[in-house]
Write a protein that binds this DNA or RNA. Structure first.
Length: 368
DNA sequence: AACGGAACCAACCGCTGTTCA
DNA sequence: GTGAACAGCGGTTGGTTCCGT
């Protein structure tokens, strides 16, 4: 025998709450405290379902709710926490005093998500995506209005990549930080390398298909996320503890969110150029630790390549999980070894064919 | 001023894990 | 042990407001 029904399903009021109803609910909870939502509506004289009362209280009437516009620090924390936790709105809300999960969810969907898309950043994976972004926005903002000859050269150099969306994404992780001086020159050097890598990967994928080998076992998406997050957090030079993060770090369960700050998000998002990938923020002295980082390029059967940069990917995101698990033919890792060399590794039967050390082409330390 | 589309957000829906009779 | 209700959560809806034409 189970419990008695909580309430009659019919005859209960739905829709927006009136001030009178709010008053009744607040008065009752002030006197009796919250809890036992089943009997609360009847005792408080409300023609509402207990669930509706609970939602109204927790999302709107609770005295500790902070209303009004989100501050910059709150917005920053939301983006960062979302990059770690995914759509775990309650978990995010627990780290933002006075904000409800519903409010954060609404704010994400109506403000932050759209802005990230405008910036060319996938709001699910937090990875820069050039298919969401105009090529011209890779350049520094002023270039969009007054392009220099170098800017135009960069655009021309990018043109051959137009048919390779994932290489464009990879390029986007390098180019924004390399707008001046030697770094810009090195970025130009990167472009032919990207094309070379693309062709080599296609050749390896073709060979792998001809050998008709089963796809390599894939780690669970959550496991991959934890590994990626851990690796990101272990990278020196990535810790960027703003006051918000220091507050978060007071709670052990927030350790990852706090220490990963620099690896995941910079402090400002008004400009996509501020969204510098973790790699760009590293000091040259950290090069010895680079073996812990890699960018993964996974190829699917239809040759639609996916690039995950060094930023962490939420495990709870179905899209992200799908992206990880959809790889079937060849998984190629774009990484950096202990010397700071760019290394491409295909972890299937063709792996041996595709280990390229690129220190001759590109001095990666200039980007760190 | 009127209209239509976009943006916003409170509230609901449906699912899942937990609690309890 | 069982099953129904509870509590909590994320996704979605629909009413309202804003804004451009």
């Amino acid at each position: 025998m189970g419990r008695a029904p909580c309430c009659e399903k019919s005859g209960l009021k739905k829709g927006p709450w009136t001030p009178e109803e709010d008053e009744k609910l607040v008065a009752y909870i002030k006197e009796h405290g919250q809890g036992n939502w089943r009997t609360l509506p009847k005792n408080a004289g409300l023609s509402r379902c207990g669930k509706s009362c609970r939602l109204r209280w927790t999302n709107y009437l609770r005295p500790d709710i902070k209303r009004g516009r989100f501050s910059f620090e709150e917005e920053e924390a939301i983006i960062q926490l979302h990059s770690i936790l995914g759509n775990k709105w309650s978990a995010i809300a627990a780290r933002l005093p006075g904000r409800t999960d519903n409010e954060i969810k609404n704010y994400w969907n109506t403000h932050i998500r759209k802005r990230l898309l405008r910036m060319g950043i996938d709001p699910v994976t937090h990875v820069p995506r050039l298919d969401l972004l105009d090529l011209s926005s890779l350049l520094k903002p002023a270039a969009a209005y007054y392009p220099t000859q170098a800017d135009l050269d960069t655009l021309r150099a990018l043109e051959p990549l137009a048919g390779y969306p994932d290489l464009l994404r990879l390029a986007s992780t390098f180019l924004p930080a390399a707008t001046t001086g030697a770094a810009a020159e090195q970025a130009q050097l990167l472009l032919p390398w990207l094309l070379q890598a693309q062709m080599a990967q296609q050749a390896a994928a073709t060979m792998a298909q001809q050998q008709v080998t089963p796809p390599p076992p894939q780690a669970a998406a959550g496991e991959q996320f934890l590994q990626a997050s851990t690796a990101a957090c272990q990278m020196p030079g990535l810790v960027h503890a703003s006051p918000t993060q220091q507050q978060l770090a007071q709670h052990p369960q927030d350790h990852m969110a706090a220490t990963c700050h620099g690896a995941v998000q910079p402090t400002s998002y008004d400009n996509q150029l501020d969204y510098v990938p973790a790699l760009m923020q590293m000091a040259p002295s950290d090069a010895s630790n680079l073996q812990q980082w890699s960018s993964t390029v996974s190829s699917s059967n239809n040759n639609n390549y996916n690039v995950n940069s060094g930023v962490s990917t939420p495990s709870s995101s179905p899209a992200a999980a799908g992206q990880m698990n959809s790889s079937s033919t060849t998984t190629t890792t774009y990484g950096l070894n202990a010397r700071g060399d760019v290394v491409i590794t295909a972890d299937d039967d063709a792996a041996g064919l595709l280990n390229m050390h690129l220190s001759e082409l590109l001095d990666v330390s200039d980007y760190m």
